[in-house]
Amino acid sequence: MAKTPLDEIRSSQVWRSIFRHGYPDTERNRTLAALSNIFLHLHPVRVRKSGLGVRYTWCMGGLTFFLFLVETITGILLMFYYRPTGDAAYNDIAALRDHVPLGVMRELHRWGAHAMVVSVWLHMFRVFLTGSYKPPREFNWCVGVILLVLTLLLSFTGYLLPWDQLAIWAITVGSNMARATPFLGHEGPGASALSVHGLPLIHSSDDARFGLLAGPLVGEGALLRFYVLHCILIPFVASILMAVHFWRVRKDGGISGPM
């Protein structure tokens, strides 16, 4: 039988150095496909059939992860055109709107963020209603709760970056809560108890809200702080926790099913 050009490529040294197995149409090659690819290796080789159906999982956990990737990619592209300073931030966003015909990066990023908040809620909803947090998955549920909180914080910090009226006032409303933190906020209960010889230790210029905003009000300091939180710190922590989350799904017996 004559070799087709495709076969030539498939049997070349280059191809075989990348793909260690043949076309995944045999059981052996399908197993190798999942095992020898780092991305597919997130999965086990085999999964419980009952856990596979969309009717069971609603695909919400996977979609949340996918949306995280969408946010990462669109976010990196947006970072090329955005400077987190009081003078530049708004104009950079306005330029994206006005000077990029058919531009959808900001739209993808914004709507993807809303969708991710919804999908992570629905993922939690499904996991609770199927009792999938029960032993042995208690700890992984807690990791998931933290990831849910991080998702909300990611969205919250991103809210400020367009530096428009909606952004600054939504963050003002949200961060005003922090000044009422018990003991650590200057308008929180117990803060007046933290004093030395009648001199209060907690002021509007050093309380919990100040720590969040890098100032007593939402200003340029807060913009930089939220930018770093949004682009670096929270994604960094969330990535680590996602690795733990996915790893534990497998270590705790794979996708949940009836015990």
């Binding site: 999942a34 999964v47 419980r48 009952s50 695909c59 996977g62 009836p258």
Partner: peptide, 23 residues
């Protein structure tokens, strides 16, 4: 979910394909 809950299927193609469609 319990009917045939011990049945295991291969991730490639069964899971990977439905993930791909959802994506």
């Amino acid at each position: 979910e319990k009917t045939g809950s011990n049945d295991r299927v291969l991730v490639w193609p069964d899971l990977v394909f439905s993930e791909f469609i959802a994506l």
